[in-house]
Design a protein around this nucleic acid. Structure first.
Length: 739
DNA sequence: TCAATCACTTAGGATATATTTG
DNA sequence: CAAATATATCCTAAGTGATTGA
């Protein structure tokens, strides 16, 4: 659906022609931010969910110490700025009277400060923690024999298996590196020792069997190995929509021809005359055969993969064995950019060890390159976290081999991220007050900054870095919004001052939303749009660097993305409080959790393509519900009948029958209810992806504390991977944690 | 002095695996 | 037991934001 509303290709490069003669009549009534904010959050016009809008925040923090926010941003020196961004930057860097204190705190130190002295972290927790864990172990040991005794043989086995699993889990837990209890390295050092085996390279290309032929213009052509490999890439994708797109086809064809020999290039000049049918069929057969493999074959493959994982999937980092995230070198393929990507279909080339830079300790076993090869470089930089890197040929960007999310390096960073967001909580009121004031600034740049910040805070928009034109799909974030991305409505659906957003954001996911805003914001937007045309930047005096510079002066570590984290986690916390009830049963609690999670996903616009089978499976469920309803009706009727009979002659047997029927009705009702809940849950989730927010925006400690308070087992909320990733939070979070 | 580069987080789709259902 | 469905994992693209170097 995102595709339909193609944003028009605008090549008229950011011609900044703002005629900026804003006259500052400061007449608007002062707005109450809180009131506006909380209720309007996340009203997507497209998908209306049952989720209640987030509750009003009770953010009553008083920022006592901070004079900065009290000062009126007194820039009498306003002058219309006519030129482009560069000029503006200069002007504004002269500006602020107030940045020094905040900025003088060196960044690296701040991290420590933010993590210490916080109620829920710190080493004192350690002992308590260990105790409680021991208790847990004991308990489980006690419970299991009892449970096993009760059941019969097969059940016994199941029990045994489960016990084993639990034991394994405990064992794992025992040897987990509890890095969060250790001192942190300072000044950008990421590790002291790093050893690994280098990345794993994909297998060489296997040429086609002789009976599978490529045809050009009806005639079989034996391709050179290189050309054949690339042809197969295309053939394999023939079922995909990509191969119908002109851009994809053209890019592919151009790059394919580069791989051809001279003769091949002479011969093959038209993609439409190429017949990949046999290659495609072969590929399909392979896929099919793979599916139909016997258990043994599958096991064999699994074991082989396991071996690769053992050898290449781990590294030693400061005496601990850590899992590597992406230890496999990306195999060659046709580039699949998202949306209308100008480079889709280009050939992503096969990498050689000669392309790869290795990073590891000087005193470690240096990884051995594949036979007959050598590394591009081996370096020993312990201020970065990557183990290997290479430059990818399609976009020219760097790619890295890094650790898994459950590693110390990633976990620590994640923790830090949430601590920064929590810190924002203590000054968000002041910051909001300031940007509301800045809405009236005499300087255009400051006004634009204020409006952008208003969007970022209220709507959780991304910062919106500039992108190089023609290199990527045309997507935008807040600072890069163009005038065609918003429409202003004086009134709409009974609301005043409504801004209609319609643009493609990250990954070409459409953002569509109608948002009532304050009068002053509305007026400013009108002003920003004056004398501009399609293709012009809405915020022509603003970019992310400027915005972030300002933010970091308000609070060390503050950047635009922190607002997303902050608002996401706050929303979860509020929603959980609002929706869940300790007296609910577990299913209801989980539904509440999912809804709270969903509110965040809606806020952050985390979408997914509706599953291909969605309509079908929904219909199936619906028919199941219908038939269950009939069953219920029948059961009820029978119950009535039985009752009647029982009344007529009070036979004990008949009473038993009545009870039975009653039970049947009850069971039926429960099942029906469950299915109906499932149906709504699924419907609400149709195009919403919960996982992204869960993984990246929601402070896990909120969820952990909620589970503890609600007595919901944590694994109902987090699967194994997620529990590993959030081990630090699971370990340190107490019942009373508040974000 | 800012565009390019670098390092790292965030993102959705594809694919594999597990579970449920018929 | 197979098919359908749900869930987990893999994969790599696409962002953010700090730093760098021409």
């Amino acid at each position: 659906m995102a595709k339909e509303d193609k944003v028009k290709k605008v090549k008229a490069k950011k011609a900044k022609k703002a005629a900026l003669t804003d006259d500052l009549s400061s007449g608007d009534a002062h707005l109450n931010f809180k009131k506006t904010k909380s209720t309007e959050k996340s009203h997507k016009a497209t998908n209306q969910h049952k989720v209640k809008s987030p509750k009003k925040e009770s953010t009553d923090f008083e920022i006592a110490d901070d004079k900065r926010f009290k000062e009126e941003p007194n820039d009498g020196d306003f002058m219309p700025e006519k030129k482009g961004k560069k000029r503006k930057r200069k002007l504004e860097s002269v500006e602020g009277p107030s940045t020094s204190t905040a900025l003088s705190v060196p960044k690296k130190k701040k991290k420590k400060a933010s993590q210490e002295g916080d109620g829920s972290s710190g080493p004192e927790k350690t002992k308590k923690k260990a105790e409680s864990k021991n208790k847990k172990v004991k308990k489980e040991e006690e419970e299991h024999p009892v449970a096993a005794k009760k059941k019969k043989k097969t059940k016994e086995e199941i029990e045994a298996a489960r016990a084993l699993k639990i034991k394994k889990r405990e064992e794992e837990e025992q040897q987990r590196w509890r890095w969060w209890e250790e001192e942190k390295y300072e000044d950008g050092v990421k590790w002291k020792f790093l050893e690994h085996n280098g990345p794993y390279f994909p297998p060489e290309y296997q040429p086609l069997p002789d009976n599978v032929k490529f045809y050009y213009d009806g005639k079989p052509v034996k391709l050179s190995l290189a050309a054949e490999e690339v042809a197969l890439f295309f053939a394999q994708m023939l079922d995909h929509e990509y191969t119908t797109k002109d851009v994809f086809r053209d890019n592919f064809f151009a790059d394919w021809r580069k791989e051809m020999t001279l003769e091949e290039r002479m011969l093959i000049t038209d993609l439409n005359k190429c017949d990949f049918g046999e290659l495609h069929a072969m590929h399909r057969e392979k896929v099919e055969a793979r599916k139909n493999m016997s258990k043994e074959e599958k096991l064999l493959i699994k074991e082989a993969n396991q071996k690769i994982l053992e050898e290449y999937g781990y590294c030693m980092l400061d005496h601990h064995r850590e899992r590597i995230g992406n230890f496999k070198i990306e195999p060659p393929a046709l580039f699949r950019g998202r949306g209308e990507h100008p480079k889709q279909g280009m050939l992503k080339k096969r990498l050689q060890p000669e392309d790869v830079i290795i990073n590891c300790s000087r005193d470690s076993r240096i990884p051995v390159p594949p036979a007959g090869h050598s590394w591009k470089e081996v370096r020993h930089d312990n201020t970065v976290t990557w183990l290997a890197s290479w430059t990818e040929n399609v976009q020219g960007s760097c790619k890295y081999v890094m650790l898994n999310a459950n590693s110390k390096l990633k976990g620590e960073k994640d923790w830090e991220k949430y601590e920064v967001a929590r810190k924002l909580k203590t000054c968000v009121d002041a910051i909001r007050a300031q940007y509301l004031r800045d809405l009236k600034s005499k300087q255009m740049g400051i006004r634009q900054r204020a409006v952008a910040l208003y969007f970022i805070d209220k709507l959780a928009l991304r910062a919106g870095n500039e992108k190089e034109e023609g290199e990527t799909a045309d997507t935008v974030g807040c600072c890069s919004l163009r005038v065609e991305h918003i429409t202003l409505h004086d009134t709409l659906d009974g609301d005043n001052c409504v801004v209609e957003f319609d643009f493609l954001g990250k990954d070409c996911i459409r953002y569509y939303n109608k948002v009532p805003v304050s009068k002053r914001v509305f007026k400013n937007l009108k002003l920003f749009m004056q004398n501009k045309q399609e293709g012009d930047d809405l915020f022509d005096r603003l970019n992310t660097a400027l915005l972030n510079k300002h933010l970091s002066s308000l609070m060390p570590g503050l950047t635009a993305k922190v607002f997303r984290t902050y608002n996401a986690s706050m929303t979860l916390q509020q929603q959980l409080k609002e929706l869940s009830n300790p007296s609910d049963n577990q299913a209801e609690k989980l539904l509440s959790y999912n809804r709270a999670n969903r509110a965040v996903a809606v806020l952050c616009n985390h979408q997914r393509a509706p599953p291909k089978t969605f309509e079908q499976s929904m219909a199936n469920l619906q028919t199941k519900i219908e038939s269950r309803k009939e069953q219920l009706a029948l059961a009820k009727k029978e119950l009535k009948q039985a009752k009647k009979e029982a009344k007529a002659n009070s036979d004990n047997k008949l009473l038993v029958v009545v009870e039975k029927k009653k039970k049947a009705v009850q069971r039926c009702e429960e099942q029906l209810l469950r299915m109906e809940v499932q149906a709504t849950d699924r419907e609400e989730n149709k195009q919403i992806a919960l996982s992204t927010s869960k993984l990246n925006y929601l402070d896990p400690r909120i969820s952990v504390a909620w589970c503890k308070n609600m007595e919901v087992p944590l694994d109902k909320i987090y699967n194994k991977t997620q529990r590993d990733k959030f081990a630090w939070a699971i370990d340190m979070t107490e019942l009373d944690f508040a974000f």
